[in-house]
Amino acid sequence: MRMKERVISLSILVFAMVYLAGSISLSVGTLDKPGPGFVPAGVAIGLLVVAGINVYKAFRASAEPTEQDSWLKVAPIGIAIILFVYPIMLRPLNFIIATFVVLFALLRLLKFKSLVVSLLTALFTTFFSFYLFSNVLGVVLPSGFIEDIILRL
């Protein structure tokens, strides 16, 4: 926990520095004519100070490693990867295929029953959700020929 806390508080401090640099590069203006960088600069200075306090607190505490210190947890990392891959897949593959892949991957990641059951569950959920969102709730989803066939049914 301590190591995680140190890394995270340091990351916030670095973000504050970068954000401050970005804010100053905008026009900060004066008190009577505040520019677009006025509020960002104020926020960045505040963030720098408070993040600094958190870094100090995190480094002052003892750094005994605990079980929670591990960053390598399969399920959360897997879910994160799936979330970043989904928008990349969605444009070329459209809703049905991209969603099926994501659901199947999530079910396997969470160790849901057997391979075949996961496959069927992902397939059913994908088709059902497309019908529900597209036909019943009127959501416009990325569509290709598979989606068009379903919509015509």
Partner: peptide, 8 residues
């Protein structure tokens, strides 16, 4: 295992 993929 069912609930979490549905929420996602």
């Amino acid at each position: 295992q069912i609930l979490l993929p549905l929420i996602v």
